[in-house]
Amino acid sequence: MHRTTWIELSSEALRHNASVVRQLAPNAAILAMVKANGYGHGAHWVAEQLKQHVNGFAVARISEARVLRDAMPTSPLLLLGTLVDKDLLLTCAGLELDIVIHDIASAKLLANTPLPKPISVWLKMNIGMNRLGLSAAEFREAHLLLSGKPHISSILHMSHFSDAEDIDARLTQQQSQKLRTLSLELGNSPISMANSAAIISHPESHLDWVRPGIMLYGDDPTQRLSNELALKPVMTFKAKIIATREVAKDEGVGYNHRWRASGSARIATVAAGYADGYPRHAPDGTPVLVNGQRASVAGRVSMDLMTIDVSHLPATAIGDEVTLWGEGLPAAEVGEHCGTISYELFTRITARVSRFYC
């Protein structure tokens, strides 16, 4: 099949990364984050590959939950913090979804809404992110309000760290203690705090459930894992060269001639642009791989095309393969050049890009 722009998705890498989570947190259940279409990798595919390796999945939108529930009729599935109303609660019961409750009004509504099937509730406490979550007083009130209700099958306690990747562990330890202390006062509810960074760096936070996200897809937010625990990139974004040309000294390339040749240069045009998900704001010097060798962006990325400097790679030819990120070139490195993170790069890939699962 003729193609110029595509992503390759490795099931072996995905399962390897899940095994790293298991090795780091052997006593915790694993709730895999598959929101945002599995961080751009395909939620259904990710869930299918991991269903024997994790204990459940989490999404951020009810539309995501519907699609995944159709594909995974029996897997535990958590709907993360969202706007809660009676219709949503009834939908969660019908789809057998767990739900995060992060404000006292939602807790009161749930307490007073009979449901056709009982659901599990994950009460979220704000421990310092100041984004979502109940205060300590509200958390206690919500727990007591929901305890013993016939339509509540279980109550779990959760929170989310703000700085778990920081080399200074003190803030994370302080945040962890806030939830652990209050949870202990309220009984023996299972606790979930650890995201990817905490799974790697804060083993004391693993407790009952860990919630890996970006590390499942191959990015180590702490940059501390190595050897057999090193993560593997699941997504490799590729495109082909469709033109090459010689450029004279001082000639410009691309819109507004942002890049100009300091001497005679060779430029390759690659069939990928911002309509495929590659960042338009990628600066000159952003790395790519041409047949496994490093080259760099030269000129402004356009909708369907980008240009790279291959002056030092004289054998470069039309049809050659370019890796934009993935195996051999971490998405995090590309993101650092572009002033963003791998999460955004992964989720920006558009529907017109071909996908190959291996």
Rank of each mutant, 00 (worst) to 15 (best):
G277F: 06
V54E: 09
E251Q: 14
N130P: 02
G254D: 11
G292T: 08
R61W: 10
A271Y: 13
D85N: 14
F161P: 07
V247W: 00
Q52P: 00
S10D: 14
K117N: 12
F161M: 14
I242R: 07
Q175K: 13
D87Y: 08
D168P: 09
N227E: 07
G252H: 09
L109D: 04
Q23P: 00
Q223H: 12
S106C: 09
G285C: 08
G254H: 09
T172M: 11
S135L: 15
S205C: 14
A275Y: 09
M129T: 08
M158I: 01
L89S: 07
I104C: 05
P190S: 04
S135M: 15
R352T: 11
H53P: 00
I62S: 14
L89E: 08
G38H: 13
V290S: 04
E246I: 02
E251W: 04
F57V: 05
W6S: 10
S120Y: 01
L68C: 13
D87I: 05
N55Y: 01
R180I: 03
K238A: 03
N27G: 13
D87W: 07
V34Y: 03
I199E: 02
L182C: 11
D103I: 08
A265D: 06
H206G: 00
F356Y: 14
P26L: 14
A105H: 15
Y357L: 15
L132T: 13
G326P: 08
A36K: 12
R266K: 15
R258W: 08
N126I: 11
A271M: 10
L77N: 03
K108R: 15
A351H: 11
R211H: 00
Q223P: 00
I152R: 11
E336N: 07
D208A: 03
L90D: 06
L68M: 09
M215G: 03
A197R: 01
E165W: 12
H2S: 13
L313P: 00
A13T: 06
